Structure formats: C-alpha cells, structure tokens
Simulated assay, not measured.
Amino acid sequence: MQRHIIMMFDEYQSKETAKHVLRGMQENARQGYFNGSKAPFGYQTIGVGQTGAHGRIKKKLAVLESEARTVRMIFELYVNGIDSPRMGIKSIAKRLNAEGITIRGKQWQIQTIHQILSSSTYAGTHVFNQKDSKTQKIKDEAEWIKTSGAAIISQELFDKATKLRDAWSPLKCVPQREASPNMLMGLLKCGHCGCSMSVVTGKAGRYKYYKCNGRMRKGDAACPSKNFPLEKIDSLVLKAFTETVYTPQHIRAIIDDLRTSLAKNKDPNNLIRLKKLETELKETEAAQAKLFEAVEKGFLELDDQLRERARQHKETRQTLLTEIATLKRQHNTPLQVLTPQKVEAVSKILIKRLSTPSPYTRAYLKATLKEIRITDEHLKLSGTNTSMAG
C-alpha cells in the first residue's frame, strides 16, 4: 500500500512538472523566443541577452544564408523548376545528393525534403505546440502558438508548394491515374451515376472499351451507360482539348495575363540581390581556386579538414548558381519577344504533340484535368483555369 501511494504521488508530481514546463515553453514561444535546442535547417539560434528563470540565455531564430540558399532551391525546384520542369520530392533529393549538397553533412532523404516543404517557418510563421510530444499526433489548432520570424521564402511560394503537395496527396490522387498505361484511366467518369470508368476488352482482347464500374458491380439495371470504344474516346478528348485550349487566341490570352501578373509582382530588389549573389559567386570561385592551387603547389596537405572545406566551397557555389538562375529566370522572362507568328508556331507544335496518345500526352492530361464526364451524347472536360492555362 505504501509503495502504491508513493508511486501515485510520483506520477502526480511528474504530470504537474510537465504542465509547468509546457506552460513556461508556451509563454516563451508567445514572446517570440525559440524553445528547441537545434535550429531548423536554414536557420541558426542567436542569444538575445535576456535570461530565463534558470539562468539560461533566451534565443531567437536567424537566417543562416549558407543553408537558406538550399531551402530556396528546394522550393523553386518543387514549384517552378529551374533549368528543367518542376520536380517531385524524390527527384529533388536525388538531385541534391548528386550535386554534393548535404543537410549538415548528411544525405537528403524524401522525408527531410517533405518536412522542409511542409514547414511554415520558412515563410516567416513559426508554430509551437503543434504536436503532442508523446503520441506525435497533431493537436487542435486552437492550442498552436504562432509567432512571426525571419522568412527565407515568400508566403506566395510556400502557398503554391502547399497546394501542390495537397493535390498529389495519396488521399486525393486516384491510384489508377498514376499506374495505368491507359490515357484516361482515373480521369474518365460516368456521366449518369458518377462512377469511374474501367477498361474492358472484347473479341479476345482485340478491342478495348471504357465501361462504368457501377454497371459492372451492380448490373445493367443500376446504370444506363453503355461501353465506349477506347480509341474513339481518347481521340475525341485530344481533339476537344487541342481545339479549345491550344488555339493561338487562347495562348495569346494566357501570355497577356502572365505579362500583367509579372509586371505587377516584379520586385526591384531582385536586381540588387542578383548582383550581390554574383559577387559572392566570384568570391567563392576565387577561394576555391586558391585552395586547389595551394594543394597543387604543395603548400597545403590534402587532409580530411581540407576535403571538408573543398566540399563546402562546392556546395556554396552550386546553391549560388541555382539562386542566380532562379532570379534571372524571374527577371528575364522572354514574353516581350513572343510575336503572333511565334505564338502560332508554338500552338501548332503543341497540337501536334497532343494529337496522339503518348506518355507526354498522358502526363499533360493528368496534370491539367480534374475529370472527364461521359454520356451517350456529351463529353465534358473539367479542370481549373490555372492548370489548363499552365
């Protein structure tokens, strides 16, 4: 009995202590101080001269530029692409590892990239008390403590990354759409009952048809739809798409909207930042060249410390090149030289590429369309204006 009583008091005391500690950390967060021992990648902690209850110096987050460049690179690759189309999380991790860019000496993993893309800290909003420390479950948003801090990327770029991650979530993405070789799988839905359409074969596999899943599961009485020849429907979808979206008139309208948007959002500080980055690049390359020269002439011995220094120079150079390319792309978008003749030529090329089913066509439809509804008389293509313009 005595043992049980002591254990009960110990448990009670432990819970009370935890409550007091959490309360203190919450108040610390509300005042804008950082509670963790290790700063997120892209940041460093700096003492602010104020002492806590136990004599500890309070800290705040500050941008660590050498790491922040990599963070910007990750968001740009995921949202816009830099020297190639936008990349997925796995491809970004592979690229960073291939270029020798590390996360504090370690290789990048998919989960690490996902955590960075998910963290609002990089857009200037740090969130504390978001997860339960024991169960790791997300708490009710009313319990979160949000504070403003130093931002590495813009809120607009972070919002775009969030929308992309949500759109490609396994809970929202149709598995058939990703795995099936058929062009419209996962997109095509029955216009009568709303069920997805699957591919069935006839005449010993010589012919393929789209058939309503509801009719297959419940019988012909459940849905009045019929089977639709696969090749004919694929052809009709591509024809409708090319005749509506990629006409010269529609492309010119998209370009005019883009010009207006770029003129509105162009930041005059980008040119100043670009010159600063180019200066940093020259200094980094000069330091790298001096290091190599010293090793070649025998003034320095190539040991582990020197190898690490060379790796840091290489990593800094690569992130600078990436950020410079991003700023140049944003500033020098060649919309002004797109004459009506060039627009018409682009329209013809796109229509030609989208005229027959192919991996390119399938990838484009998957990224552009939300769904296609089909009945005996109508074929309706749906998607957001933004994605269809992109």
Rank of each mutant, 00 (worst) to 15 (best):
M1T: 11
I6M: 13
M7Q: 07
F9P: 00
S14H: 01
S14Y: 00
E16I: 01
H20R: 13
M25T: 00
Q26G: 11
G32E: 01
Y33V: 01
G36V: 04
P40S: 08
I46F: 05
G47L: 03
G49K: 05
G49V: 01
H54Q: 07
G55I: 11
R56A: 06
R56M: 03
R56Q: 09
A62W: 05
V63A: 13
R69G: 11
V71L: 09
E76G: 07
V79W: 12
G81K: 01
R86Q: 02
I89A: 13
S91N: 10
A93C: 01
N97M: 10
A98I: 04
I103G: 01
Q115R: 15
F128T: 07
Q130S: 06
K131Q: 02
T135A: 14
T135C: 06
W144G: 07
K146R: 15
S148K: 11
G149C: 15
A151T: 03
E156V: 13
K160T: 07
A161S: 10
T162K: 12
W168Q: 03
W168A: 07
K172L: 14
A179W: 12
C193Q: 00
G194H: 00
S196K: 14
M197D: 11
V199H: 07
V200N: 05
V200Y: 05
G202Q: 05
K203D: 09
Y210F: 12
K211D: 13
G214E: 12
A221I: 10
A222V: 03
K226I: 09
L230S: 05
E231F: 03
V237N: 03
V245R: 12
Y246V: 06
P248A: 06
Q249T: 15
I254D: 09
I255N: 02
D257S: 09
L262Y: 11
P268W: 07
N269W: 00
L271Y: 14
L271D: 05
R273K: 13
L274Q: 06
L277E: 04
E278M: 15
A289V: 04
E293R: 04
V295H: 01
L300G: 08
E301S: 09
D303T: 10
K314C: 07
K314N: 13
T316Q: 10
T316I: 08
T319Q: 10
T322H: 14
T322G: 08
T326Q: 10
H331A: 15
T333K: 12
P334W: 10
P334D: 02
Q336I: 14
L350S: 08
T356H: 13
P357K: 12
Y360L: 13
A363W: 04
A367N: 03
I372S: 02
I372F: 06
I374W: 05
E377Q: 15
H378F: 04
G383P: 07
T384K: 06
